[in-house]
Design a protein around this nucleic acid. Sequence first.
RNA 1: GCGAUUAUGGCGAAGUGGUUAACGCACCGGAUUGUGGUUCCGGCAUACAUGGGUUCGAUCCCCAUUAAUCGCCCCA
Length: 425
Amino acid sequence: MTIQIPRGTQDILPDASPKWQWMVEKARQLCKLYRYDEIKTPMFESTDLFQRGVGETTDIVQKEMYTFKDRGDRSLTLRPEGTAPVVRSYVENKMHGWANQPVKLYYIGEMFRYERPQAGRTRQLTQFGVEAIGTEDPTLDAEVIALAMSYYKSFGLTKLKLVINSLGDIESRKAHREALIRHFEPSIHEFCTDCQNRLQKNPLRILDCKVDRDHPLMATAPSILEYLNEASAKYFTDVKQTLDQMGVTYEVDPTLVRGLDYYNHTTFEIMGADFGAITTLCGGGRYGGLVHELGGPETSGIGFALSFERLLLALNAEGVEPEIANPLHCYIVTIGEAAEGKAAELLFKLRQAGITADKDYMHRKTKGQFKQADRFGAKTVAVLGDEELEKAVINVKNMASGEQQAVAFSDLPSYIKSIVDQQEG
RNA sequence: GCGAUUAUGGCGAAGUGGUUAACGCACCGGAUUGUGGUUCCGGCAUACAUGGGUUCGAUCCCCAUUAAUCGCCCCA
């Protein structure tokens, strides 16, 4: 048996990489506009970081972490998400003391979760995320949401839906949680076993349940929005107003719950075209206690994470293609062994002049080399054989018009350039 | 962790309990000497996931394993 790629991972082959480069480039450009700076953190961290940062009760920590011991008997974990590491770095590097506040960061990198692979779900995934840490300001929440939406829209995606919600502050959350338990507890035996487990663990999740969605108690369940205290309600209103002013359209969904423990106040999710079971492209929100939990000051941050794997599904679902291409300007056809050295030299000079150029390395016959050039979509083919060598010229064929012209070796780069310019113009 | 489906040459895809396992695409070569599409001709390939079992004999039947795809859970 030959060795296979590990389960849930994938190779990104050359025909797919333009799209990946495209996704990365657009993320970087957008972050420049919004003035977020890149941060890179390690792919693995102390296991404690995720246990404390993400939350002991979350699925990520309970069953999805790639945890291992190194030779020094330290427990390490391949990062399953980006926020906890960034906040760790924020605290460790005392970014709360930096002159520019809030600290606005973005990251692009691989995350690892031990899950059953499925459409839009892999064990290694690539996330782009931003974190704005150091203040609690509704316009910042709106900015982060707007950034995420702008990112998707910059690809020309149209089937997007932004859903927002507020979990309120700790006090509001707690009041709501108790109300939910009071609401469901008497009849919890009528619900699925998952929901019975959720009752104490995370009663908010019951509202998400697909099995029991038609149960009468669902419709009458207390909404978080009714339990927001004054400050939380105002904060949420301000976020919504800012989005309105920016012209970002959204839907409020009081049942929107995010999986990680650290969220409070604003949460949001962006969904895309329906491909398979998964429609969530991006998730984010504000995290209140996290910085302090990890040893920093009492401050708050907001961010989102999205995966390129799912964005790719959305791009494919809507048939979006990148404009990036790499046209071949010149293909050199050699006839006879004597031409090989000169061809290599000319290739080198063409490339030095910024012209994309290639040749045959498979000892194909002339016709085969032309076929190859055609397959590459070469703008020009330059033929070099004994006749040309004798006269110190090379015959350049314009592949669009079929015209052929003898050109002195030293004039080749400028001649190719003129034909390419002419074809493009 | 649970469930469903699938597993044939580089790719796609037929097929059978028993001699050389179709075909298409791709690739290479040729159709009078060094020129791309199309057409025609020819060539090419360690192909029946792995390990057991049933059978005189299995790629085809049964079991297990592995992997892929999809779904549940949960999430990006």
